[in-house]
Design a protein around this nucleic acid. Sequence first.
DNA 1: AATGAATGAGATTTCATTCAT
DNA 2: GATGAATGAAATCTCATTCAT
Lengths: 208, 208, 208, 208
Amino acid sequence: MNIFEKKKRVKKMPPLNEQQLDQNREERREQIKKAALKVFTKRGIIGTKISMIAKEAGISQGLTYRYYHSKDELFIELVKDAMEETAEAFASLENMSSSPLEKIKELTKKMLDTSNKHSFMLIQQVQTSDEVPDKAKEIVRQYPIPSFIEQLIPVFKKGQEMGEFCKGDPAKLLMLYFSVISGLMLLPNKDEEDQALDVDILMKLIRE
Amino acid sequence: MNIFEKKKRVKKMPPLNEQQLDQNREERREQIKKAALKVFTKRGIIGTKISMIAKEAGISQGLTYRYYHSKDELFIELVKDAMEETAEAFASLENMSSSPLEKIKELTKKMLDTSNKHSFMLIQQVQTSDEVPDKAKEIVRQYPIPSFIEQLIPVFKKGQEMGEFCKGDPAKLLMLYFSVISGLMLLPNKDEEDQALDVDILMKLIRE
Amino acid sequence: MNIFEKKKRVKKMPPLNEQQLDQNREERREQIKKAALKVFTKRGIIGTKISMIAKEAGISQGLTYRYYHSKDELFIELVKDAMEETAEAFASLENMSSSPLEKIKELTKKMLDTSNKHSFMLIQQVQTSDEVPDKAKEIVRQYPIPSFIEQLIPVFKKGQEMGEFCKGDPAKLLMLYFSVISGLMLLPNKDEEDQALDVDILMKLIRE
Amino acid sequence: MNIFEKKKRVKKMPPLNEQQLDQNREERREQIKKAALKVFTKRGIIGTKISMIAKEAGISQGLTYRYYHSKDELFIELVKDAMEETAEAFASLENMSSSPLEKIKELTKKMLDTSNKHSFMLIQQVQTSDEVPDKAKEIVRQYPIPSFIEQLIPVFKKGQEMGEFCKGDPAKLLMLYFSVISGLMLLPNKDEEDQALDVDILMKLIRE
DNA sequence: AATGAATGAGATTTCATTCAT
DNA sequence: GATGAATGAAATCTCATTCAT
């Protein structure tokens, strides 16, 4: 660092550079979010005590508040993330070159996959429960699940034409299908291998 | 209670006769249970405040404690009832003269019917949540849902032989099927008429 | 109570009549407000712990929350009351038949009187401190003290004409005078008898 | 510190010489004190968070503790300083050659001057509030304000003889006068120019 | 029996102080 | 020395349960 660079730093001389600090901070936030998502989905927003999240994240209660002002704020952040992921999951189907049936199957697997499930469950919680903050409700309302499902209607219709899917009102069939998936997500875990099988059986609901 | 039993209790002369009092008491308990079931299933045991139950039942907070010593006790009582009803629902199939497929269909309707749903949802809650009292967990463990489902295996096998049901491991198929039903119960209400349709589509999961 | 009256009561049969309950409730609120006013003026809103108010009122911490949802709400209610009292104190001068000088003197006495002082001090606190809730600031801003003082300008002018008050800009003189009074209120108590004397000396500020 | 003392400390060879270090340290302490005084007087000791002082001083929270072991210690140090300044302000009158009235007027100006006001306000806070550390209370008790005022009694008497001051008990008149000044200090700022005028009006309290 | 008030244990949140870097 | 993170004790607030009427 030459003397000119030195002058840039107006305020003070922190021991670590700001970029490093920001990154640490971001990592902590992720650590907390990960822990929180796990506990929130397992116990609901009211059943979740901040102390549980802190313990799960391996930090003190107080520290949680340096990163999130309140339990609600943390919850809301997670809901935002979950909505984004969901939107992406649905949107990503467009770019797939596979058949309609394969697309739906892929999406189903993604939703039931343990690593993604938590996000979907969180959204379920927001839709189902009265305990969640209004802000969270709003966010989910802004991007309603039905609208995601509607995106699939063209795919489904094409599948019907190709004879992959059964006849019937695409909107209604898809809605029921995803209700079933949603419901399954709320149930306690199953073994991974079983899951793989399940998907094929589930597809019977919409297959010809 | 016969008239001889009645004479046994003679503490004092109440304004109403004992039988009447007992009946009143029982009615109150039912009134409270009904209210509690509604709120518990909607908000979970932690999300439910005693004040909410009291309000729903149209009585005062304090009075609730005349009939149930604690929130947990009330919850446990409801779980007991729910288990009994569930057991009955499954057992009653034996006496039905209809075909295997019709039996399963009937059971499905019963489970998804708004008036019964609450009991099933309560059991779900016990299985899913960590917040419920240990005693409740125990009760549900004593009569595990899988054992109910096992009762249906003979019925299912018969249906397979008759060509009503698809091929495959009956235990596994039934388990998935009822997982789907359970999951659907957890979702917010749908219109009654749609429900009627849904059942037929759901049956595709196990039908030939 | 005759049978017709009995029918009026739609809901239930409470042991005490509603009027009595409402009155009790109101008394409790007053009791809490009185205690709170004392502690708030002595220690400021932040320095005041709910436990102090509860102790001063002789009730449990928890009970406080049955009457006021938060410390802030309680504070705001007190500010409202104080503003009303202040407005009244100034307004009441109009109806007095005494001379301008006597009017100001009376007002001064009222403000410095121990029994009223707390209300004025509370308003001071709102104006001086950054810790008070925004709502409280708003309320005080709605009826600004200067506007109260302006009401006195005609009185003061008349006093000047009568030779009771010194020459000079009435607005400026009154503002200074009441600044002095306000300041004095913030200081720890003096003996009652001294106070009586003080007023006459203070009047020198505006007397001819 | 003389040059001999300097040689006594020879632990290691610091990049800067000891004197320089000490001076830096002293400057930092002053920087912190200045910031603290500003915030303490504005928000009270409880309303003041260490983070606020650090921010005002432009340093980190943690660093504050390198210079002061606790918030209380910092507060106490400020109170000491304030008492010394006050003592000096009163003492300095002795050396003035002006008339008694001019002396009091000068003192008044000094007290209401924005740059000095903070110290006086701090002392007020110690006298008024229950939140301050006991040590601070003690320090102020050791040099009671009344004793400062008593120092002025000879001056006041001389002024009375000279016909500059009004008749009456000097102790009582001075006490009221400084109560008024103290009170005024607690009020939010006024414009500088108004202040100048105010002093003359205030003097009416004690002038003939 | 019935009510609503009252309590107190436990949860959330704040912040002075300590710690690792 | 300097920083910002981390801790934990104390405050606010909630609510299951008990109590007086």
